[in-house]
Amino acid sequence: MKNQGRFLKWFMGLFLVFLYAPAFLLPVFAFNDSSIVSFPLKGFTTKWFSVLQSTEPLHIAARNSVMIAVITAVFSTLFGVLAARASSRFKFPGRRSIMGFIMLPMVLPEIIIGVSLLVVIIQLGFELSLWSIIMGHILICTPFCIAILSSAFMNLDQNLEEASIDLGQTRWNTFRLVILPLVMPGIVASLLIAFTISLDEFIIAFFLAGTEPTLPVYIWGQLRFPQKLPSLMALGTILLIVSIALLLIADYFRRRGIRKTGIENSGGFL
């Protein structure tokens, strides 16, 4: 008993070191006063952050990425709501295979999706643009949204909906007044997850980016130049803080939802 406990604790300790090593090094190098990303450390500086401020292409790439992520989040959540509602509330012919097909991108390597979309766009003679990236991102984000939203919809007592109809409300108002408020925490979580996945997605954007890069495509381009690396560390630090802030916001909404309704109905973050 004791041995096993001690082994597990040691294992967890080492595992956490392994897990956090890169995230820990990120701010260390972001504030390191040296143009080479390596040890030993030189001194403290914030100049890499000011470099970011004056890098115009970075701003363009970031703006592209945010725009893509927002549109992706909205559409994949919309598709997710429809699919999650359909599969958790209704029995229809072919439900399992239809859902399996829609969820497929979750286990498909992203390179396959990138390649196949590239083939279609080129064969049909379309131009690569930010919209081609958005399409690809909606495709891969929708399954994650469905996973989150399904648990929100499944925790919904079907009687609540019937009670509303029984009390004389229309179907649409039932959705608006009863279902939507109760799955709202799930919808917020879904929007944030899709936003975060899209913001960080590289492969599909790499294959489908035309002349306008996204943030990860821009970062990929910069990784080749050693002198750019310290400012990338600063960028990574900012992205980490933004992501954690988004997660905490999502968690706040989830908790508020639980407090408000007294039922756990949101689904986790992953």
Partner: peptide, 14 residues
């Protein structure tokens, strides 16, 4: 899950 909210590319580069 926290460490995985860093940029994927930068994480691998690290």
């Amino acid at each position: 899950t926290i460490p995985f909210w860093t940029s994927y590319l930068i994480r691998i580069f690290l």
